[in-house]
Design a protein around this nucleic acid. Structure first.
Lengths: 192, 192
DNA sequence: GCTCCATGTCAACGACTGTTGACTTTAGAA
DNA sequence: TTCTAAAGTCAACAGTCGTTGACATGGAGC
């Protein structure tokens, strides 16, 4: 029995959202160059040409799909000694919330626009948070860079490289290990 | 005046080495998919077909070019409290020694074979080093994973994403900041 | 000198890519 | 119902990719 598959109602906004979701999925799973317009369109159940019509070209599609809001919490109400663990805990849930973070991370290693975006995300979102806890602006930049290195490194190993012990660890364990590291990068000093 | 450019003497071993060098350069700069056989051949000053003749296909070429030896030092003669800083210092010079580490890192984010290789490198080279300092094998695996996350994260931010403050920092500064982190991952405990 | 095999070049293949323009179909206004 | 602009489809383009097989060339041994 051949059944005509019911076409979704023609809704530009819904189609646009479906394309963005599909794009995030493919970019996160395959990286920028291996995620093809055709694969994204197939995932969204539409024609590849429509993707171009909605977003112009692949670069602009990526830019629209990889708009990343870390949603960082306000740490000023916490005891200063707890900010490290709190920040780690926040990232652990943020990573799993959607595909945007991983898509941007994977793409950033081979696409300069994505790398630039990633730098901007940390400079504009993590930077001020660090500055509110820290001394001079120059010092805050260094601290933010160190935090980025550990946060991105864990995301890379756990979600991109799939390093076995890290994939299997519980969130509380990871907070226990990484929390003191981030705490020192935020409020401690080098050397000790 | 037209001068015929002097062809290099026909030396299979030298050509093979030139291809490997060119491949490491392109893979490190562009990642796996954007580094084309044609670009690698051009960099080596030969015909693309020759690359295939020497290495079979692109995957095998990458496998040959990305054979990574971390050259980790023996830390057993050091005071236990110094191993973190020593390991960080070693990686800082290892990263700059050649293009292999960065090539493997960049490729690992979009190529499963490269990711598998990267996991193997850390499991086989960092793992035993950690085990020699640590208790049970399971515990050593976790510690090695944590070390990987910080080491790879810093390499990613400093050499791939080019995060400004990290690029500009001196090696001693980085040892000062990262040393205690790695020290705790190697010999310390979670929570504190 | 000549021969022969390793070394290297050349042109082309099929597949896949982003992108385009012409075409068709649908929903809603008139 | 009729008309129209929006929404979606289709086939094809030009370019690039990895890879291949036929061909050219050079140097070591006779």
């Amino acid at each position: 029995m051949t059944r005509k598959q019911s076409p979704r109602p023609r809704d530009a906004e819904a189609t646009r959202a479906a394309i963005l979701d599909a794009a995030r999925l493919r970019f996160a799973a395959d990286g920028y160059e291996r995620a093809t317009i055709r694969a994204i369109a197939a995932e969204a159940g539409i024609d590849p040409a429509l993707v171009i019509r909605y977003f112009g070209n692949k670069e602009k599609l990526f830019a629209a799909a990889a708009e990343l809001d870390l949603g960082l919490p306000d740490l000023s109400s916490l005891p200063r000694s707890r900010v490290g663990a709190a920040l780690v805990a926040h990232f652990l849930v943020r990573w799993e919330a959607d595909d945007i973070f991983i898509a941007l991370l994977r793409a950033a290693t081979t696409n300069e626009a994505a790398a630039s975006r990633m730098r901007a995300v940390f400079a504009e979102q993590v930077g001020p948070l660090v500055a509110s806890l820290s001394g001079s602006a120059a010092e805050a930049q260094i601290r933010a860079g160190l935090v980025s290195s550990q946060i991105l490194g864990m995301a890379l190993c756990r979600y991109v490289l799939n390093v076995p012990p890290l994939v299997g660890m519980k969130d509380e364990e990871l907070v226990g290990w990484m929390g003191p590291t981030i705490q020192r990068y935020l409020t401690g000093s080098a050397g000790k």
